[in-house]
Design a protein around this nucleic acid. Structure first.
Length: 476
RNA sequence: UGAGGCGUAGCGCAGCUUGGUAGCGCGUUUGGUUAGGGACCAAAAGGUCGUGGGUUCAAGUCCCGUCGCCUCAACCA
């Protein structure tokens, strides 16, 4: 136990100071390093591998919706932003601008994209001429820049990686359906791949994307009870289509304005994984996206046959499509156990002379820290089953923890008490901006998402009849 | 922008009140003994004390300026 305490000291206590724990973990597990420019992060190979796995899983899902990947330029003429009034107002404060290039002052300043609706809208107006060109669905994986005042690795950085999908449709109904369908894909992805349960639904006017008609969000609860906006899907109506002149000739011969959507998730998802599943030992990465799914730690590696047995096992698992590492460094086994646990590897196999003799291996799982004996001969099946079970258990555990912490409140005091204890709080809302602002002011909580299909008698603030139920939480 | 704090070895820090040989822990390197939960022994490397000026025989330490970072507030897809 004394040794465990020592270990805990190294990565800060998750229960004492969650933000400190978080930065400790991302730095010490070599996910990221700080960049030289404030608010930027260097994503190291171990962290980037998670991102690549996210990309792969996401691309599979995009294909099922007929979305194709493309790439648009980093620099966007400033004038593009002024075409949509709400959009420019929302993003102007955090746009970084290039004013000098080639040693000369530019005639028109260039924005470093904070998001690409403007340039993609411009291109789509060229590409869309006829109803036969619709629907048009493109996605790009890229970096964007938003000059944030306070930053935290993955959760909010000046520059971050994301995917942004943009679709153009002939009708309002089709565009709305697309918006919802992408939200569903995000939800399914978050739960099945990241083991993060999310609440989905619409955002209030105050919280919606600048320029959207409606913004839909998925909100995840972090270990400290705060909410993280893990992905959004926007129904843009004709706002951008009008501003960027996206029109098509209908089959009846008249010129129509199109309807557009956009949706995105970012490297923030990696932050969400850390803050959802991490514990006092460090990271816990869900098997589907884990860079290393299984690590083999040799015991008494200098004794004859141990290294060979480990290598054979590694090859066997690798051939079965499992991402496996054989840790043949000369650190002590105990050191390796802790190291790989800290790095969040879902399954660890311990293999020593005793096991080899009896044809067994010891499997330890990261989520419960339980050890079990398994047959070396059936290693592939055993490890696959274990990985699947870890994945399932991580989601269940996160869901149970969240569900226990969703409560109801009738008034501001109830909301304040609820969010202070790290809960999501449901409460009635009359629908007016004044009441929404008042809750933020007095409790520090914001309206995260509408709780659809639920009703309340009265607004928690003004006591007028409630039109909606809102989930309030403090947020990252 | 308001308030506070911190800059000394790769990392974390002590030393400053009361000026006088640059310290500690971890890590790193080398050699050896070990190995089923961060093992042990021995040796070594590593610092213009953020930076500019001032006081002094002498400044990490005192004084003035300056730069950077952190926390809280504010701001914030």
């Amino acid at each position: 136990m004394a040794k465990e305490t020592q270990f805990v000291e190294q990565i800060a206590d998750i229960n004492q100071d969650f933000p400190k724990w978080y930065t400790d973990v991302v730095l010490k597990t070599k996910l990221v390093d700080y960049g030289p420019v404030k608010g930027t992060m260097v994503i190291r190979p171990y962290g980037y591998a998670i991102w690549e796995n996210i990309q792969n899983e996401m691309n599979k899902r995009f294909k099922t919706r007929g979305v194709e990947n493309a790439y648009f330029p980093l620099l966007i003429p400033m004038s593009y932003f002024t075409k949509e009034a709400e959009h420019v107002e929302g993003f102007a404060p955090e746009i970084a601008v290039v004013t000098v290039a080639g040693g000369e002052e530019l005639a028109e300043p260039l924005a470093i994209r904070p998001t690409s609706e403007t340039i993609i809208g411009t291109m789509c107006s060229k590409w869309v001429q006829s109803y036969r060109d619709l629907p048009l669905k493109v996605n790009q994986w890229c970096n964007v820049m938003r000059w944030e005042k306070t930053t935290r690795p993955f959760l909010r950085t000046s520059e971050f990686l994301w995917q942004e999908g943009h679709t153009v449709h002939a009708t309002e109904q089709e565009a709305e359906e697309e918006t919802q369908a992408m939200l569903e894909i995000y939800k399914e992805f978050a739960e099945n791949c990241l083991a993060i349960p999310v609440l989905t639904g619409r955002k209030t006017e105050k919280e919606k994307f600048a320029g959207a008609v409606a913004t839909y969000t998925m909100e995840a609860m972090m270990r400290d009870g705060k909410s993280l906006q893990a992905g959004t899907s926007h129904y843009l109506g004709q706002n951008f289509a009008t501003a960027f002149d996206i029109k098509y000739l209908g089959n009846e011969g008249s010129l129509q304005t199109a309807y557009t959507t956009s949706w995105g998730v970012s490297t923030r998802l990696i932050g969400a994984i850390i803050m959802t599943h991490g514990d006092e030992r460090g990271l816990a990465i869900p098997p589907v996206v884990a860079p290393v799914q299984c690590v083999i730690v040799p015991i008494a590696a200098r004794k004859g046959g141990v290294v060979e047995a480990c290598e054979t096992l590694k090859e066997k698992l690798e051939n079965a499509g499992i991402r496996v590492t054989f840790d043949n460094t000369d650190n002590s086994p105990g050191w390796k156990f802790n190291e790989w646990e800290m790095k969040g590897v879902p399954v660890r196999i311990e293999l020593g002379p005793r096991d080899i003799e009896t044809g067994k291996m010891i499997c330890a799982r990261r989520d419960t820290l339980e050890k079990s004996e398994a047959s070396l001969e059936n290693a592939v099946e055993e490890v696959k089953a274990l990985l699947a079970d870890v994945q399932k258990n991580m989601l269940e555990r996160a869901r149970n923890r969240r569900d226990e912490r969703i409560i109801y409140a009738d008034d501001i005091d109830g909301i304040l008490a609820g969010v202070e204890q790290g809960n999501f709080v449901k409460a009635g809302w009359c629908g007016c901006r004044e009441c929404e602002d008042k809750i933020k002011e007095e409790t520090g909580a914001t309206a995260r998402v509408f709780a659809e299909n639920e009703t309340a008698k009265e607004c928690a603030v003004c006591k007028k009849p409630a039109k909606h139920v809102i989930i309030y939480a403090r947020a990252y």
